[in-house]
Nucleic acid binder design. Sequence first.
DNA 1: AAAATATGTCAATGGTACTGACGTATTTTG
DNA 2: CAAAATACGTCAGTACCATTGACATATTTT
Lengths: 179, 179
Amino acid sequence: MADVAAAKPIRTALTNDDGIDLTIIELMFFAYRDFTSDPDKILAEYGFGRAHHRIVHFVNRMPGLTVAELLDVLKITKQSLARVLKQLIDTGHIVQIQGPRDRRQRELYPTAKGRALALALARPQSRRIQDALLEAVPGDRATVERFLKALVNPELRPQIDNLPADRAGKIVGRDNGDE
Amino acid sequence: MADVAAAKPIRTALTNDDGIDLTIIELMFFAYRDFTSDPDKILAEYGFGRAHHRIVHFVNRMPGLTVAELLDVLKITKQSLARVLKQLIDTGHIVQIQGPRDRRQRELYPTAKGRALALALARPQSRRIQDALLEAVPGDRATVERFLKALVNPELRPQIDNLPADRAGKIVGRDNGDE
DNA sequence: AAAATATGTCAATGGTACTGACGTATTTTG
DNA sequence: CAAAATACGTCAGTACCATTGACATATTTT
């Protein structure tokens, strides 16, 4: 009976007074939407989507990673990866090389074309971040990084720490004189 | 000819040395993914997706907004909204009321059920933010808010400013004694 | 030799988004 | 008042991204 009649509309707005951090919740939504809009435009020219972006990005960040490692970073299924990875291989952005130790594995490497795409996609995002930090005072960047990292599930934070920050000292793979 | 041969793999990792702010780019990816994972789990129980989340959220934040206004906030097409909004109306989360001034318009209001859903979805996100700011010093929250807002396209920032922060003074609609 | 692992693939499904076109009710404009 | 514009809804078709489940192959481990 109560279900039949139209439910009564609530006319008062949900606000921060309700004990919810709506300000940052909404800023995350709007910020992320616009943050991804620049690469989305570029990807559309190639007929690619966000899945291609993520794959080409992490293959460039961790050259030689295996399919299983890539799945672990992206937290998607093998089947979801398959089609998109195949397209990137077919278009010459990524190459597969049989694992030297374990020949069941396929190590994934970017080509020069794949590196160029990763850079083209990252540049506008980096630029947007740079602009957002224009009026930042020393320490603001660290504050933002701490906050974002603290939003990540704790068990996944080591994965982020293991990404190469720069080329000082660390040798990720033998440099064979790419370009 | 050059295209036939397998392209040479690049074995060096892309790093911050390449002039790209990879650290924050990747933090944004991981942070947003985990930030949306909590509501995603709840939505799955209802057979809903992220589109339902966004609609039920902003209808609760701006009760009485019209379909056109909602489209303008979400930046999606009428056709994309249609199916999802219909589901939320059919399940009694949202009600439509003919606009009092312009009868072509349909004002959207949450029901008690819709308000409860919006709160249930927002709570884990708010909690995650609260936890992320646990060790923050005064000023850190403002720094994060400034940064996120600066990532948003400039022309859309007024839209964010117009969302009700709290109920002090401002009367968004007449309070007719909901629950 | 058997079991486990790494990968690839086939089929089916679902959610979200898009473009384009068309219809209806209502309001505004000339 | 008639025409144009507006607000909304809907139909058809398409595309991308992700899922589960099942199965096949090559290789390594036990």
